[in-house]
Amino acid sequence: MTTRVLAQWARFLGARCPRASLTSFPPLHVQAESAPVKTFQMHPLPPVRAMCEVHSLIKEFDRSQVPKRTELDELIEKAGSPEEVLQLWAEWGGSGNQAASSFVRLAKLSVEKGNQDRTALMQDPRLLDMLEKVSSQVATVWNGTLVILLRALSQQGIAPGDLVMQSLQTEALWRVRRFSYKQLAYLADWATARPGPEGEELLRSVLKQLELRWMELADVRTISLLMARARHLSPSLMDKLEDKALELAEKFSAEDIRRVALSLASQGRRAVPLLRTLSYHLHQKPSAELNTPLLLDVAYAYGKLNFHQTQVFQRIAAELLSRKAEFSASNITRFAKSFAYLKWLNLPLFESFTEVGFL
C-alpha cells in the first residue's frame, strides 16, 4: 500500500515540477508505458531591486523632499526681536517647518532680550497660529529643527501635556531611527528632564538607539553631553563612551574635560587611563580657558575619585594664587575640602587663603 502511494506522489511531483525527472522517484513496479506528463507554463517573476538600489532610491527621495530656502527663512534669521518674528509670520505665513524655525528664532531672541512678559507672548494670536501650524504639519518639520524646537518649547514654559508638545514627542518617537547620533544625544539630554510617561518612553527609545549606534559617535561635544547624563545611561554604554573619550581626548576643550570629570565623579567611576589622559590635556590648556569655577569642579571631581595628579594640582594652585581677588568663602571651603580628601598641601595657596581672612 505504501509503495503505491509513493508511486502516485512521484508522478504528481513530476507533473508539478517539470525540471525534476521521474527517474528520481522510480516506482517499485515500473509500467511499460507511462502517461504523458502535462507541464504548466511558468510566468517570469517581476524583477527584484537589489538592496543597494533601494538605498539609493531612499537617498534620492530624501534629497527631493528637502525644500529650498525662501525669502521668509532669510528674513526670520535676520529678525532682531520677538515682535519682528511674529510680524513676519503674520505677513508671510509658511509651512510647518518654517513655523518651527520661526518659533526657535523667537525663543532665542526672547532669552537674549530678557523678555519678562512670557505669558503675554505665549498668548499672542500670531504665536498660537504658528504653533497650530507646527502641530498640524508636524511631519514636515526637519529632524534638526524638531530637536531644537522641543528644547525651545520647554524654555518658553510649554507644559508637557500641551497638544503641540505631545505631537512633537510622538513624531520624535516615530523618527528615532532617522535621527543622527548628535541629534539623538541632544534629544536624550532634553528628555532626561521631562516628566511623564511620554518623556520616559522617548528617553528609553533614544538611549537604545544610542547604544546600538555608538560606533557613529565622532565628536567630543556629544561625548561630554551624554556623559553628563551618566545616571540615565547603561553601564555598557558608559564603557563605550569612556573608550571614545579616551580616543578623542586631545580634542577636548577645558569645559569638556570638566563635564567628563564631574560625570565620572557623580558615578564613582575611577577610570584611571581616562583621568590621566584628561589631566595631561588639561595641563596644556591656556589660562584663559581655566576659569575659577572650572578649577573648583576639577578639584572636587579628583578629590571624590581620590585621583592624584601632582602636575594638575600645582597648575590649579598657580592659577588660584594669581586670582586672590576672586576668592569667596564658599570657593575656599570647597577647595580646602577637595585638597584635604587628596591629602595634598600647597603652603603658598593656603597662606593666601588665610590672608583673605576666611580661614
Rank of each mutant, 00 (worst) to 15 (best):
T3V: 07
S352R: 03
A7P: 08
P125H: 11
L88K: 06
A10I: 09
Y300S: 03
L121S: 03
P235K: 00
P27R: 07
M130G: 10
R276P: 02
R175H: 02
W214V: 02
V48M: 12
L210K: 07
Q8S: 10
S253D: 12
R231H: 07
L296P: 08
V298P: 01
A107T: 03
C52Y: 14
E326P: 04
T222H: 13
L22H: 13
L86V: 03
R204M: 04
G199D: 09
L282N: 01
R175G: 04
S279M: 11
T192F: 05
R151E: 11
Q267A: 08
T39M: 04
V260I: 06
A15I: 08
R231A: 10
S328R: 07
A230D: 15
P125A: 04
Q156V: 05
L225P: 12
R258M: 04
F103R: 08
L45K: 15
E171K: 13
S352W: 02
I76H: 08
M238L: 03
W92S: 04
Y341M: 15
T140Y: 06
L217E: 03
K133M: 10
D162R: 10
S21K: 06
W174A: 15
E211H: 11
S34C: 15
K324C: 13
E326H: 09
Q267Y: 05
A35L: 09
G196C: 01
L225I: 07
L106M: 02
T23Y: 07
L22G: 14
R151P: 05
W89D: 05
R177V: 06
A100G: 01
L275M: 04
S352M: 03
E351G: 10
A317Q: 06
S154V: 06
V220D: 05
R49D: 09
K133Y: 15
N115M: 08
R11V: 07
A249P: 02
R178L: 08
Q87G: 09
A228S: 05
F25C: 13
H29C: 14
Q169T: 13
E84H: 12
E355K: 08
A249E: 01
G303E: 11
T39K: 09
P26C: 11
M1W: 15
V134G: 03
E250L: 00
N143H: 15
V111K: 07
I223N: 00
L241R: 00
G96R: 04
V312A: 02
D129Q: 04
R177H: 12
P47Y: 05
E198S: 12
V134H: 01
